[in-house]
Write a protein that binds this DNA or RNA. Structure first.
Lengths: 193, 193
DNA sequence: AATGCATGCAAGTACACGCTTGCAAGTCTG
DNA sequence: CAGACTTGCAAGCGTGTACTTGCATGCATT
């Protein structure tokens, strides 16, 4: 494996565990089984390593397609797809999400990148629910709030998995959680108030 | 105001912003308008300040009462109460929750204290939903998953407020979110599948 | 074989940080 | 007023850390 890859992986592992400021370049070098000077020759500075980590994960999810072109307008199907995609997004980016939370403010760009997907998804969900209301598929309701409820449910589940995994994991599996939550949620939005 | 109070407040402010390791004792002293040596005379060490911050917030919520003695067994009422209490818990402890997330692992006791309430609340909700099912108030369902859905919804909303406030706040207010979410959720658990 | 490149190694620099200490000044209490 | 206590101030100690540099070594390409 490439030297720089080993360094990035080592850094990711350590920063996830101890935070950016809690990890020294020497520790990263040792973990990567590399001399410290090599780290600087490759990345210039400690911050450079962090930037490389983020660059490697630039993988923004595409919810647009799921809720527009590919939408079946059967909410149970579409929302399950969205939740799967959201879940995938969390898995793929678990590393930088954790780092972004721990070391918020270290890299403004990271903050922005991480804050964006939820906002974007919220507005897409609003549009989606609006359409379903017009089509009388779901009851009349405040779509902003409905979208927020759904989003919070997914976000909350994923965040608690990320943050508290070692304490409370495996109360329920991801599969069953989403299956149950989506169907419960759909029942809620179908019925007339 | 007491010198030590000023120090604790200053430290809380700074640690929330920059993380424990991102804040120097000198910076804390300056922020508190106190000499650095005074900080050490009062708290012994930097870690001592952190412990004092946590001690000051030892304020564990009581969901037990809400879901047992005080329960009306009208889920709309009870769940709204629970959500209010949960929300209050987040507000009261916003400081140490944020610090706990940022500096996870710094203080094992803090990790534990913060991981506990959600787990506890989950098991209380499970009991509650079990009872309502036996009483035929709500449909038959897997109460573990139902509890998790509700909990994730509340947790997710509060966490995103805490973490991303500056980016996405005020899409919706807390009041309307909980009112809407609880009623949507209750519709979901009432209806027969 | 010669050249260039990536790396290891050892030493070192500059600085920030946690923490200590001795002394002087101010405040509060009996 | 005397004594105890708190604080400010200035200096300093030891350590860890980001980062640099010069040299030697091995490897690959030409």
């Amino acid at each position: 494996m490439q030297t720089s890859d080993r360094i990035i992986e080592a850094a990711t592992r350590l920063i996830k565990k101890n935070g950016y400021r809690g990890v020294s370049t020497k520790a990263i070098a040792t973990e990567a089984k590399v001399n410290e000077s090599t780290v600087f020759r490759q990345f210039g500075s400690k911050q450079g390593i962090l930037e490389a980590i983020i660059e490697r994960h630039s993988d923004i999810p595409q919810f647009e397609k799921l809720l527009k072109e590919d939408a079946t307008d059967n909410p149970e199907v579409d929302l399950l797809n969205v939740s799967q995609q959201y879940r995938l997004f969390f898995h793929k980016n678990a590393d930088i999400i954790l780092i972004g939370i721990r070391d918020k403010g270290m890299l403004p760009e990271l903050d922005r990148v991480l804050a964006e997907p939820p906002v974007k998804l919220h507005s897409l969900l609003v549009e989606y629910f609006e359409r379903l209301q017009k089509k009388k598929v779901i009851a009349k309701q405040d779509e902003r709030l409905t979208a927020m409820s759904f989003l919070s449910m997914c976000y909350g589940f994923q965040m608690s998995e990320l943050i508290h995994r070692q304490y409370q994991s495996q109360l329920v599996t991801e599969e069953e959680f989403y299956k149950h939550s989506v169907s419960l949620f759909v029942k809620g939005i179908l019925s007339q108030s």
